[in-house]
Simulated assay, not measured.
Amino acid sequence: MSVSESTTPERGKPSVNYARIFERYALLLVWLLLIIGFSVAMPDSFMRWGNFSILFASYAPAALLALAIIIPLTSGDYDLAVGATMTLSSCLIAVLNAWQGVPIELCIALALLTGVAVGLFHALFIVYFRIPSLVVTLGSTSLMSGLVQWFTNSSTIGGIDNALIMAVVGGRLLGVPYAFYYALAAAVVMWYVFDFTPLGRRLLFVGRGREVARLNGIAVERVRVGSLVMSSVVASAAGALYAGVLGSADPYSGLNYLLPAFAAAFLGSTTIMPGRFNPWGTIVAVYFLGTGITGLTMFGIPLWVTNVFNGGALILAVTISQLTRGREAPDIG
């Protein structure tokens, strides 16, 4: 029986739970109302396909970063280092390609391998030394930020191979740059893994209760290691996407994505599949927040309002997520 249906004992027929359906799609409705509101306020500038095309492409790295965050969150760990990992990846690609002349394909492969190394580094301290994930990933954020500033000389690096730029934003489908579709493809893969594979069930099982999962024969440590590694690899892929969108690498700007990505991860757990971190809810949340920031920017709102918007969204999202998750029955069967 679907979560949106209940059975009436008198007739044994399913009845639709409209409150549940509304909860699932409330954020989509609010997103639509936000678009309508900005369109009415700025009829000559906001409601243009070119505006949305830029929005979809520019927030694709943030979408990948938010997807990276929900992998360890599902298994009960936090990865605060995804922003630094993304920055490390984009700057590594830029330094190797623009300064050292390494082919762009090899640069991307090395960046992804660096993501594997970062994930294993986190897993060593979090899983085997049992240090809280918040502490480890916060420390590694500072560590990676220092390394990036060192090997980039704290400077923005241009001159990245045009092949990467063309592959990310040069081509378009339905008027939208390919960057958006890469994030969408990652969401499809993650949705399939989370909902239709034993691995996805194990992740959820571990996140809901590690001791219970261990008693049921699940290799909890292995699942946690895998989730931390995959989080870093996806964050590294976001770095490659980010380098392609910008056409350059900045040793500082990537960290600005961390707060909105976390806000999107928690806000996404209140929609589509309330009570669970899920990729579709995360994608919707990223572009909901992106629409709000874009609209406010077009209004000419000062820059500090963006920080207030992101911070308020994170607090509200975590609060709603905790309330939703607290009343959800474990969905692991």
Score class of each variant (00 low, 15 high):
residue 5 E to T: 04
residue 8 T to S: 15
residue 13 K to I: 14
residue 15 S to N: 11
residue 16 V to Q: 10
residue 18 Y to M: 13
residue 19 A to Y: 11
residue 21 I to R: 12
residue 22 F to S: 05
residue 24 R to T: 02
residue 28 L to H: 02
residue 31 W to E: 00
residue 36 I to T: 12
residue 42 M to G: 06
residue 47 M to T: 01
residue 53 S to E: 12
residue 53 S to L: 08
residue 55 L to Y: 06
residue 61 P to V: 07
residue 66 A to I: 06
residue 69 I to N: 01
residue 71 I to A: 01
residue 73 L to D: 02
residue 73 L to H: 00
residue 73 L to Y: 10
residue 75 S to H: 06
residue 75 S to P: 06
residue 75 S to K: 02
residue 76 G to I: 09
residue 77 D to E: 13
residue 80 L to F: 09
residue 81 A to P: 01
residue 81 A to W: 01
residue 82 V to S: 00
residue 84 A to K: 03
residue 87 T to F: 06
residue 90 S to K: 01
residue 92 L to I: 01
residue 97 N to S: 11
residue 99 W to M: 02
residue 102 V to E: 03
residue 102 V to K: 07
residue 106 L to T: 14
residue 107 C to H: 05
residue 108 I to M: 12
residue 109 A to L: 15
residue 110 L to C: 06
residue 112 L to V: 10
residue 113 L to K: 01
residue 116 V to Q: 04
residue 118 V to A: 03
residue 119 G to S: 09
residue 122 H to A: 05
residue 127 V to R: 04
residue 129 F to T: 05
residue 130 R to N: 09
residue 132 P to Q: 07
residue 133 S to W: 04
residue 134 L to Y: 14
residue 137 T to D: 04
residue 140 S to R: 01
residue 141 T to C: 04
residue 141 T to D: 01
residue 147 L to D: 05
residue 148 V to Y: 07
residue 148 V to C: 05
residue 154 S to W: 11
residue 154 S to E: 14
residue 156 T to L: 15
residue 162 N to D: 15
residue 162 N to Q: 15
residue 164 L to A: 06
residue 165 I to M: 13
residue 173 L to D: 01
residue 174 L to C: 11
residue 180 F to T: 03
residue 189 V to C: 12
residue 190 M to F: 14
residue 194 F to M: 14
residue 197 T to W: 10
residue 198 P to T: 09
residue 198 P to F: 08
residue 209 G to K: 07
residue 209 G to V: 08
residue 218 I to M: 06
residue 221 E to G: 12
residue 222 R to V: 08
residue 222 R to I: 02
residue 224 R to M: 13
residue 225 V to I: 13
residue 227 S to H: 07
residue 235 A to T: 08
residue 238 A to C: 11
residue 239 G to T: 10
residue 246 L to Q: 11
residue 246 L to S: 06
residue 249 A to R: 06
residue 249 A to L: 12
residue 251 P to L: 04
residue 255 L to D: 00
residue 255 L to C: 00
residue 259 L to Q: 04
residue 261 A to C: 12
residue 263 A to W: 10
residue 263 A to G: 10
residue 266 F to D: 00
residue 266 F to K: 00
residue 267 L to E: 02
residue 272 I to G: 00
residue 284 V to Y: 10
residue 286 V to A: 05
residue 290 G to M: 04
residue 292 G to P: 06
residue 297 T to D: 09
residue 300 G to S: 07
residue 301 I to A: 15
residue 305 V to K: 00
residue 309 F to T: 09
residue 310 N to V: 13
residue 311 G to Y: 13
residue 316 L to K: 03
residue 323 L to V: 03
residue 323 L to T: 01
residue 325 R to Q: 14
residue 328 E to R: 15
residue 330 P to L: 12
residue 331 D to E: 14
residue 332 I to Q: 08
